[in-house]
Amino acid sequence: MILIIGGAYQGKLDYARQQFQLSISDILDCTQLTSELCQKPLTAKCIYHYEAYIEQCLLANIEPQTAFSPDQIVIADDIFCGVVPIDSHLRAWRETCGRTLTALAIDAQSVIRIFCGLPLKVK
C-alpha cells in the first residue's frame, strides 16, 4: 500500500490520480460513508479521506481497517498540527487517526507527503 498524507486542500488526490492513473471508479470517497457503510471492507484501489472513514468507525465503535493490499493507495488528511481539541469526540478522532496512520505507515511501501501540490517522499 502507498500512503499519501498532507494538510487539507493540498492536491493529494490530483497527485495520486496523475501518478497512478486512477479513474473516478477507482476512488472511494470516505466522506460519503455512513457508520453502516464503514463496516464493509475497503477494497477500492484508492481510499480517499481515510481520516473520515476513521471518524465513522469511531461512531460505529469498530476498529478501522489497517490491512491493505500492495496495490492500494490510501490518502489521508493530516489533522495533527492544531491545538488539542476541547471537544472529546474530535480529540478521540485525532488520537485514533494518529495511531492508525502510524500503523499504516509502518506497513506502507512508501509514504508521500504533499505540500502545496508538490510531493516529498518521506518513506
Binding site: 486542500y9 502545496c116 501540490g117
Partner: peptide
Amino acid sequence: YSDTGHYPKYTQDYCKALAQVDRHLA
C-alpha cells in the same frame, strides 16, 4: 491546513481559497 477542527463553511472556504493560490504559486 493540518488542524483537527470541523470549521464552519466560511472558514473552510477561506482555507480552500488560500490553498488554491498556494498550489498555483508552488
